[in-house]
Design a protein around this nucleic acid. Structure first.
Lengths: 193, 193
DNA sequence: ACTGCCTTCGAACAAATTGGTCGAAAAATC
DNA sequence: GATTTTTCGACCAATTTGTTCGAAGGCAGT
């Protein structure tokens, strides 16, 4: 009644909830299996390894985020609003992603090469989107940047820099205020006056 | 420059952060030690065991909660407001406590007897506070209950019942709305009309 | 320099946990 | 009822984990 591919997705979503809560290392195959009410070994019929599941989960999350970003960008016209929306959606996903990437950032935990690989792939995609927004802003003569490639990288670096401490600071500080602060800093050097 | 007792408190607070995030089982002595920049074995100079630390952490949290509850109750006069404040503060601590008690409620994880013991002690304390609020309400002729002991237990059961699913439902539902719903249900049988 | 005390540490270990395998049973499909 | 798809429990090797222990560092007083 439900094919293999659909069941894989079911696993991805279920495992995603656990990974997002505990990170890669602290999530066990047993937990993933029990959450799906299956035996541990049954999971291996659908995925080769724990890393395999994790990769699928992250790619799935990246897809969702990409869709959210795309619609958020398309929903407005002005380059400033596009950039604003982009950063906003991206920031909202920080917390979630931070949990996934837990294994990387938390110095207490081990370092996993394969996670870095996934991340690099994701970063390159993000860079492409940022570049497009900047191109658009240049054409509309709203942005004033010398090298759009480096500018995109600079923005990405800023966002990534926020990502890590964001994981640790108090959650009471609301996202709108943080967003304003970031936009102010970021736009001061970008927007043509 | 810093005595033993103070350092114990330092450990309690630091370990508390980790326990509250990962629960008892998923928290390792190594993590606690590294967070304090010490060797794992050094911790054993201050505490006998991991369970020992956990107990200290929970008791510390319970103390904080007790203080919060007491001031919240004292800050208002009417029994209804007292009960309202009590439930409000208690609910806000649910999430935190749920994480600690993770090991109990999460069916995927094992069952720890010693946590139950700590919990029972805490529950008895809570019951006493509830009883006092009810007495006060009766004296002021605001509450209309037959047996204050059993009523306190009934309220406690309601709160505890909420605790578990609260851990799982979406966090977007805001606490004020939930509070209203609970108060409506709870007060319907208690408040004299 | 010596003594005694408080504190930290690394090495070591037994027990438990973990990701993963395999063959057989069970369920579904033909 | 034969064949394919899916699930499962038993099992394993490797790693992790809580805990112990003796040595040693640091420090105060003598």
């Amino acid at each position: 009644m439900i094919n293999k591919e659909e069941f894989r997705k079911k696993i991805i979503i279920s495992a995603g909830l656990i990974f997002s809560r505990y990170g890669f290392k602290k999530t066990t195959m047993d937990e993933i299996a029990k959450a799906l009410k299956m035996g541990k070994s049954s999971i291996y019929y659908y995925f080769e390894s724990k890393e395999d599941i994790f990769e699928a989960v992250v790619l799935h999350e990246a897809n969702i985020l990409r869709t959210e970003l795309t619609t958020a960008i398309k929903s407005v016209e002005s380059p400033i609003d596009k950039m604003k929306n982009y950063i906003f959606v991206r920031m909202k996903s920080f917390e979630k992603l931070s949990n996934y990437y837990n294994a990387i950032f938390d110095k207490n935990l081990d370092h996993y090469d394969f996670i870095e690989t996934i991340r690099e792939k994701y970063d390159r995609e993000e860079l492409a989107i940022l570049r497009l927004i900047i191109y658009h802003g240049q054409r509309k003569k709203v942005f004033n940047v010398i090298n759009s490639e480096y500018t995109a990288m600079a923005i990405q670096t800023t966002l990534k820099g926020l990502e890590v401490p964001l994981f640790w600071i108090k959650k009471e500080v609301n996202i709108e205020n943080r967003l304003d602060a970031i936009l102010n800093v970021l736009f001061y050097g970008i927007v043509r006056k």
